[in-house]
Design a protein around this nucleic acid. Sequence first.
DNA 1: GAGTGGTCTAGACCACAAG
DNA 2: TTGTGGTCTAGACCACTCA
Lengths: 253, 253
Amino acid sequence: MIDRVSGVPAYRQVASDLRNKIQAGQYAAGDKLPSERQLIVDYGVSRITIREAIGLLRAEGIVTAEHGKGLYVRAGVSVVRLSRSRLSRAARQDNQAFFLGDAEANAFKPTVQTTVRIEEAGLEHADALGIEPGSPVLVRDRVMSADGVVVQLATSRLPRDLTEGTQIEQGDTGAGGIHARLEEAGVVLHHHRESVATRMPTAEEAVLLQLPPGVPVLAVRRTTYDTTGRAVEVNDMTLVGNRYELVYDIPAD
Amino acid sequence: MIDRVSGVPAYRQVASDLRNKIQAGQYAAGDKLPSERQLIVDYGVSRITIREAIGLLRAEGIVTAEHGKGLYVRAGVSVVRLSRSRLSRAARQDNQAFFLGDAEANAFKPTVQTTVRIEEAGLEHADALGIEPGSPVLVRDRVMSADGVVVQLATSRLPRDLTEGTQIEQGDTGAGGIHARLEEAGVVLHHHRESVATRMPTAEEAVLLQLPPGVPVLAVRRTTYDTTGRAVEVNDMTLVGNRYELVYDIPAD
DNA sequence: GAGTGGTCTAGACCACAAG
DNA sequence: TTGTGGTCTAGACCACTCA
């Protein structure tokens, strides 16, 4: 099974072979792969070599290992489409309410844990909000779960002078969320700018989001501007990569 | 250095320790880490254990290994911001021209390799284009490089009846690209819909994009619609995750 | 209890980079 | 030539799952 003279490392050959079998449907999503010990026999290589091959497939996100049970072809996860045009005033909702709306649309049980605090703006967030470093900033930290599984982290930052005395500083911001409260306070929202990047999770995120190896995250920073061009909110969101898809509509003219 | 009774695997302890030192600045971006043999001595564990620890850090994308040289803290890469509002008619450019424009803005030397072919629509693309499976589809495959490094793959698909006899079927689509040629042919573009997801690269993509381990990709599907609501182009793009950031503007109302 | 993956050891030889 | 990471072996014991 393994070509010893090709120059291709044995573990890569094993990985390729298993990958091909998975893609060919010989092992379907959710199927159990042969055990490590069986693979050792099948391919005639050592356990370390088999584990390196499996490690590749796990890093690619196509195989998962369950301790005491076996190796499985990762089942496709249901992807949630987030249509960002719903950020419009007509469908007013802050990210939390947004998340709750998604829950309804996608039939999962949502949970949101919120903590609110005030901090001094660091360089990065001061720059993003166009305020002086050290100015007071209201910070809303949210951990969002679907059916008990954490799927999204979000941290909103707003200049404190916009939020003082409003419901934004409460755990529950009320119907319509942060944006509705801002407009009630006389801030007229003009547009949002979302910046989307991807990376591997940090060690903490991997724990919080219960991420298996081989699953990247989407890092979205949404900055909301009012009609005077001032940034009134910066929302940093971390989404589990294999569960989300962001959809944007862009006019052609 | 290693706590043998904590229950935390040695390789995780080693990884955490190195990660902390990197984050604390003890090893800066681009710095060389101690060699594997040195780490064996430092932590008093076997080479396999050290290599598993390094493997974690490589999967996280914060360390790279260079054969024969050593281990290095991955240097930050310059990120290219792609503002998607530039898809407007006023700034007309297809993805290739778009890419060339970016090159100018970001001072890198662009190269684009294009292949054109005709295929029968599969289920997925037929659905995306709203045509019958098996209908002829024009496919434009592009491999885009910056300073010789492949940074983006793109595959456009258009119903053949829209492209027959136009410059879209040539390697070079001319000024303004695909979209300009479509409008010349009487197709009035209405809007684009971009769907953004992230995942680990496939084995082929990892080779093509010369991706080190631990770097995910952004998978963007842009569907372009005309004023009759018909999908006229589906463009599947794969972007190197640590080099791109996508920026979208969303009106508040 | 039997089988699974998780962790770990002490070696070995190879390919690559650099002085 | 020396030192580096890359690959590989033949074991060992552990923790977990399930019958």
